[in-house]
């Protein structure tokens, strides 16, 4: 666990909401990855939202780590959506030449949750019966 100040991982029913709160170095990023993937397996989560709004930079390593998380989550039966990429960070990512993989992105947490198929307001845990 990287500690509550750097990242937080909240469980909401079948989903995990992971927020990165500050710039992470590579080791912290890897700890976050391991921690998140471990929790996905433990909770048998079906969906993961990763909020990266606090990241000042998403360089090749950061983007690649997010993609790895999505891939490992997929192997465990969960879908991942990245939310909160800042305008300048988004532009730097594409300028760097990140090739668009198949990890979905959305504007913010609300959109990410909507993407996973459930309105934000809904409190009920249980199965994911809304259309994906």
């Amino acid at each position: 666990m990287t500690g509550p100040k750097l990242v937080s991982i909240l469980r909401q029913g079948d989903w995990l909401i992971a927020s990165i709160h500050t710039a992470l170095d590579d080791s912290q990023m890897l700890l976050f990855r391991n921690d998140l993937v471990e929790q996905i397996g433990r909770h048998r989560s079906r969906g993961v939202v990763i909020d990266v709004a606090a990241l000042d930079v998403l360089d090749s390593f950061g983007a690649n780590t997010l993609r790895t998380i999505a891939e490992m989550a997929r192997l465990r039966g969960a879908e991942t959506v990245i939310v909160g990429i800042q305008p300048d960070v988004a532009f730097a990512m594409v300028s760097l030449g990140m090739d668009t993989g198949d990890v979905p992105t959305a504007l913010d947490l609300e959109e990410g949750l909507a993407y996973l198929g459930r309105p934000t307001g809904a409190r009920s845990r249980g199965r994911r019966d809304a259309a994906g």
């Binding site: 930079v57 800042q86 300048d88 960070v89 300028s95």
Partner: peptide, 10 residues
Amino acid sequence: ARTELTLIAT
């Protein structure tokens, strides 16, 4: 501009 600062930082 902010975007350019982020390009530099990246």
